[in-house]
């Protein structure tokens, strides 16, 4: 809890005590409950470094990332590189380096590119959660702050595994708004349904913004879902998730996809009647037109050049 005392500035050099790796600090990326994350230059290129002085928490996170790297299939989180200690002004801090993921915060991505991405991200997230759960873990502290969107193509990814807990144990770390225990809708035992509650809350936050708390009660939460057109569409799945009715992420994912398909097929004919969404869609359509026009004129130019070439 003394994270404030770790303050590296760009240009500082960190030398690992055990593995002798040398890292030059480029900039600060962020701060979690257990430490500060920096972008550093290593012999192998830019990597992310998490450094904290609760060695126990750092060690726990390293353990989780290590288990992830052994799980089959795609990497479940950022790849772990090195775990080591460093001496800064007489104090020893534990740190680890991991894959640097260049991405945008979830909420600012949605702000810039449109809320219609939110259901896509939830579906992606549920797919990842399903694999995590099958590997025997629960993410725990699921919230927008621990998620980011990497580009090309846009994909939601998690990067802070501080709350990741073995199934059956008590969840290690959580954030009130996304925690079913706080809402009085269950305990904090690490089981898939715990994450699915949090995933539903992340979705609600993505669409609605976090403008209420558990103090307003579950009824208000459910009213919010019902009163927002973009949330109401997914009400059956969200309600089931909030009340712990899903046993696994795959079930919720399927429901979300079915509801998404239903919503988008309904949306098409009623475009003129609603106010907010269609404008955006029309603008997109306009964008596509411009694209098409550009593509067409390019083809025209190419053929003109071709024929000129032929004639000469």
């Amino acid at each position: 809890m003394k994270n404030a005392s770790i303050n590296l500035t760009p240009g500082d050099v960190v030398r690992g005590k055990w593995h002798q790796g040398v890292y030059r600090v480029m900039r600060r990326l962020g701060e979690g409950a257990t430490g500060v994350v920096y972008l550093v230059e290593s012999a192998e290129g830019p990597v992310a470094m998490k450094i904290g002085n609760a060695a126990a928490s750092i060690t726990s996170e390293v353990n989780v990332l290590q288990h992830f790297s052994k799980a089959p299939g795609d990497q479940l989180g950022p790849a772990l590189y090195v775990s080591d200690d460093v001496n800064i002004q007489g104090e020893t801090y534990a740190f680890y380096t991991m894959e640097y993921m260049d991405g945008a915060p979830v909420l600012s991505f949605l702000e810039a590119r449109g809320r219609e991405w939110a259901p896509i991200f939830l579906v992606q997230l549920l797919g990842d959660l399903d694999r995590l759960h099958q590997a025997g873990w629960v993410f725990g502290d699921l919230k927008p702050d621990n998620l980011m969107i990497t580009e090309r193509p846009p994909r939601i990814r998690w990067f802070d595994v501080g709350g990741t807990t073995l199934q059956g144990r008590a969840v290690k770390e959580f954030t009130e708004f996304y925690d079913r225990g706080t809402w009085g809708l269950g305990d904090r035992k690490a089981e898939p349904a715990y994450d699915l509650f949090a995933a539903a809350m992340v979705f609600i936050h993505m669409i609605n913004g976090e403008r209420f708390t558990h103090r307003d009660g579950v009824e208000l939460l459910e009213r919010k879902i019902f009163s927002h057109p973009r949330l109401r569409v997914y009400q059956p799945a969200l309600k089931r998730a909030l009340h712990g009715k899903y046993r696994d992420a795959q079930m919720m994912r399927k429901d979300m996809m079915a509801l998404y398909a239903k919503a988008t097929s309904k949306e098409a004919p009623s475009r003129k009647t609603t106010t907010h969404t269609p404008r955006k869609q029309r603008r997109k359509k306009g964008g596509k037109l411009v694209d098409a026009a550009l593509g067409g004129s390019f083809l025209l130019l190419a053929s003109v050049l071709y024929w000129i070439g032929q004639v000469m």
Binding site: W18, T59, S60, V62, N63, S83, D84, D85, R169, A170
Partner: peptide, 22 residues
């Protein structure tokens, strides 16, 4: 002491601590 263990050994010990804590 804890600090004298290499990060790898510490990881093993931490699994024990987590288990005991549960």
């Amino acid at each position: 002491a804890w600090e004298d263990l290499s990060p790898e050994r510490r990881g093993e010990v931490m699994e024990v601590v987590d288990e005991l804590g549960e």
